[in-house]
C-alpha cells in the first residue's frame, strides 16, 4: 500500500525553551512556575491576558526564571535592590540564551518601566474581529 499525506493540519503547542531543562527528565508541573506570581512560565503574569509575545519569560544569570513583567515590577520596588527574589544575587539576564535575545537590548528600559497597568490596556477583543468571520 502506498500512503500519501495530501494535507496535514498539525496542532503544535509551544513552550518556552529553557536550556538544560530537558523534557525527558523533568516531571510534569514541577519547577515551571514563575517564582514571583506562581503561574506557569507558559501562562501569563497576573496583569496580562495573552501569553507569549505579550508576556515573555526571562532567564536570570542565576538560572531563576520569571515573567518579564513580574521581575520588572519586583525590581522597581525599593526593597528589591536589584536582587533576584529567589536567591538574593544581583539579577541580570543570562547571556547567550534564545529566550533572552529579544529582551537583552531592552534590558535597561525593562528594568525601569512598570508593567502594564491593567488588563484593559491590551484587551483587544478577538470576537469582534470581523476578519475572523467567513460566510
Amino acid at each position: 500500500m502506498q500512503l500519501e499525506f495530501k494535507k496535514v493540519y498539525p496542532v503544535f503547542s509551544w513552550s518556552w525553551d529553557i536550556p538544560g531543562d530537558d523534557d525527558a527528565d523533568r516531571e510534569i508541573g514541577d519547577e515551571d512556575l514563575c517564582g514571583i506570581c506562581r503561574v506557569s512560565y507558559n501562562g501569563t503574569c497576573p496583569g496580562c491576558k495573552y501569553p507569549g509575545d505579550n508576556c515573555p519569560l526571562v532567564i536570570g544569570e542565576c538560572n531563576h526564571n520569571f515573567h518579564v513583567h513580574c521581575i520588572q515590577q519586583w525590581l522597581a520596588t525599593p526593597t528589591a535592590k536589584g536582587l533576584c527574589p529567589m536567591c538574593r544575587q544581583q539579577f541580570s539576564l543570562k547571556r547567550g540564551v534564545a529566550i533572552n535575545e529579544g529582551q537583552v537590548e531592552k534590558l535597561a528600559n525593562l528594568l525601569l518601566q512598570p508593567r502594564p497597568a491593567a488588563l484593559a490596556a491590551d484587551d483587544q477583543d478577538m470576537m469582534m474581529d470581523q476578519e475572523f468571520a467567513v460566510r
Partner: peptide, 26 residues
C-alpha cells in the same frame, strides 16, 4: 517557528492533528 519566535519550541500533538490521506492499494 523557533527562528521567528525566539526562545520557544514546539511539540506536535498527533491526536489533535488532522490529516488527509490518500491510500493506493495493491
Amino acid at each position: 517557528y523557533t527562528n521567528v519566535k525566539k526562545g520557544r519550541k514546539l511539540r506536535l500533538h498527533p491526536e489533535q492533528s488532522i490529516v488527509e490521506l490518500q491510500l493506493r492499494l495493491a
